[in-house]
Design a protein around this nucleic acid. Sequence first.
DNA 1: TCTGGGGTCCTAGGACCC
DNA 2: TCTGGGGTCCTAGGACCC
Length: 428
Amino acid sequence: MNTVFALIDCNNFFVSCERIFRPDLEGQPVVVLSSNDGCAVARSNEAKALGIPMGAPAFKYRQLFKDHGVVQFSANFELYGDISKRIIQLLSAITPRIEVYSVDESFLDLSALLIQNYEAWGRWVVERISREIGIPVSIGIAPTKTLAKLASDRAKKDPRLAGVLNLASRDKEFVYSYAEATAIEDVWGVGRRLAPRLRGEGIATAAQLADMRPQHARQLMGIRGEQLVRELAGEGCFGLELEHKLQKSIARTRTFGEDTNDPAVLQAAIANFAVQAAFRLRREGLLTRRASLFITTSRHKPGYKQWHRELRFDVPTADSGLLISKLVEALQGLYEPQQLYHRAGVWLHDFYPEVAVQTDLFGQLSPAAHDLSRLRMQTIDNINHRYGKRRIHYAAEDLGNKWEPKHRLRSPRYVSAWQELPIALIGQ
DNA sequence: TCTGGGGTCCTAGGACCC
DNA sequence: TCTGGGGTCCTAGGACCC
């Protein structure tokens, strides 16, 4: 049986989410800005046509935004996460063989499905997601993930394809014609470092890369490069990653709303990040053995500097209070009063499944302390789940709020806060 | 004045051991 | 002044992704 993958890729996802509740913005240039309204992280086609690149710093484009009436939103991740879930639900009903690759992309393994006509199937999915959720998607269908990615990319850019390109069970020339139309920079796995090197080798399109000898690719780009070449040539190297793999790290980092040298503000930021990261850790059923924090000055100012400290725990933990106290203590060792800090973050890594702890690790240690901590965390999580986020929290989190990012342009939380539900007016 | 956040994987090199 | 070979583990840094 031949393998067939479909990649379902949402078009301009964050912008499309905003448009669900603002249909008046259809056809208008729209951008979604990152936290602190710093730079553009999603653009509508109209905004792309104005020459606004991905990651465009908002302050540099303010005049252009104004001149062309570009509508700006602060990122509203609660909304995007909710829409994303609905799409995954819809796709999971089509087949359980789904890999959720990112918030706006999923691979489906179609190999075992009885599909007569892949184009027709693709158009049916595009139509369903549009009608039931209101998000436009592009679909690429191919024998490997890398080709499916390439196909969805072509489908997105070529209006004649109406959102669907099928490269599965097609002859070589057909696949080749689309690979020739794909610039090397647009190939999945070729980034800003690799692209110029490949161009230096005379390789400018996906088709040329597919023709490279795998051994040569290996020398030039390592194992991933070799796999990339094989995948482009139709030989599958990347399988569907079905099961929820154990996460390797959890990070909470922020650029501050305002630069600061106030130690209390830094402490509050670190405490907040620690709490969020620990909550996430508990939700995944994990404990951590390593936690680190960093603080930096502004990258865009002279004298850019960063500080970093890592902590290790002999006994794995997911205790917010413990993490706060250790991290804040470490912070005090890094703090320099004459610096103006711009960004900070907390990382957790080296995880251990909570269920394994009881038997393995506490053989010689008192389990009582661990159980007490777990109970305390559970209680806090339950209260906050029931009565609202941060209803109960640590005093350290409240030492200052000047670190909090600004999001002046955020849309209402239409689907995640009752008081922000959209109101429908029914005509008389 | 104003430039995001959260991840994964691979590789090279050092530490350490026998 | 001379000083092997090989294995493993860990870490930092680089590259990539969305």
